[in-house]
Amino acid sequence: MPLFYERKQLVTPGDLLAEDDYVAGDNTYKDDGKIYASRIGLVDYEARKVHVVALKAFYVPYVEDTVIGKVAEVTTGGWIVDINAPYFAMLRASDVMDRPFKPETSDLPSIFDVGDLIIAKVVDYDRTRDPLLTVREPGLGKIMRGQLVEITTTKIPRVIGRQGSMVSMIKRETGCQITIGQNGLILISGKTPEDERLAVMALHKIEEESHTSGLTDRVTEMLRKEKEGVEHA
């Protein structure tokens, strides 16, 4: 039962990762007892499971994910939301209303109009039907202010860090509020544009260098240096 790559080694689609007794995890597939990579990324093992942390991928909805989306269309019964996935998501009008929803009396565009950005949660999705969203939880709903940063969705875990270490460090260093959408969109709102600029810079650095080690320390260092530079100027 040989393994052909070490941990954190870069592989491309089609690379043979392991043979025999292993289980194929994310971004890999098994064919004739052999496990191959299906995306470019870094190899990792957990017991008998082989998976690849992809460096390039797109968002696929997952129930319970928080996502940031843009209203693409207002229909009679709700909204169609672009969540940066292969499928558009639906948000039902009855989800937003307190009283029973009547299409003839409710003015849906006054709640969310085309182009509005919303934070929502995926409540239902499988590949045969479009994802269904909800905004009925604290922290969800229309985005009123802040900046959006888009990064590759597979790098979201890196932005969050181990037990949230990376994102809480950025919050602490910049004083910004950060809302992470699992679909690769991140909302930043800070007290000053300068704070937001720092946070955006940190996020771009994480995306660029997500596959390297010691990243949290380097990002902290960069933020501190930047802050000093501004104070002295």
Partner: peptide, 11 residues
């Protein structure tokens, strides 16, 4: 295709 992050059997 690989750059778009589409899962592939091989290049």
């Amino acid at each position: 295709l690989a750059d778009a992050g589409i899962p592939m059997r091989d290049l």
